[in-house]
Amino acid sequence: MVMRKRSFALTVYLVLLMLPIYWLINMSLKPNEEILGALTLYPHELTFQNYIKIFTTPDWYQGYINSIIYVGLNTVISLVTALPAAYAFSRYQFIGDKHFFFWLLTNLMAPPAVFLLPFFQLYSTFGLIDTHLAVALAHCLFNVPLAVWILEGFMRGVPKEIDETAYIDGYSFPRFFVLVFLPLIRSGIGVTAFFCFMFSWVELLLARTLTTTAAKPIGAVMTRTVSASGIDWGLLAAAGVLTIVPGAIVIWFVRNYMAKGFALGRV
């Protein structure tokens, strides 16, 4: 009886959770006349014209490509720099290690709005404005500390005897790190990549400020649906649905590690 009440409550929650998303999908499959007419719970005049428009207009699909490029770039930069650092924090004591670690965490908590203006000026100086690299580097502000934090949690779980044995066996540090250590924490690397992807993918404030045309993210392109004649709701909804798809795919791949990853490897 208790179990049934529980699953009932859970079902209600999941339905409420999915309802706004369903509504967006529902709207994306309707022509604008139906959207603005009487409220319909499912598309009566099913149409894919909104999606077709996005996939055939370069301005639109280029937005998705731009977003995916800087998110990918950011994930790679974050992982490559964070892996050795996380190893150092999990294995060695060195001057200022605790202070540096804390200072890294403060970056995780820094409001992007604070960095808006200085970033713009800094990247202007280096001529990086409107490049994918600018956004990828800007997102490192929160993704690198996060990656270090999660990876350190996973690396602490690997016994130090493995390192010692490998060094006695004559492995050099780089060979040991790449051939022995990284395969041991591959689920941790997967979870970290997932988080870097997630936080870079959902961020818009910095991405929008640092780009104008060539590297414009999809979130900024979406404002194009507002015109003098009003908002093109169907197109806006379709663009929104398409931004959910990459996230949904990524979740499916990491679903078994997700709970652990969200606890940042520290459960």
Binding site: L14, L24, V202, M222, G247
Partner: peptide, 18 residues
């Protein structure tokens, strides 16, 4: 888990739009 996590991976401006 997949259903519960879905809102977390929606870009924030799209959450606003929704």
């Amino acid at each position: 888990l997949v259903l519960v996590a879905l809102p977390l991976l929606i870009p924030w401006n799209v959450v606003g739009t929704i």
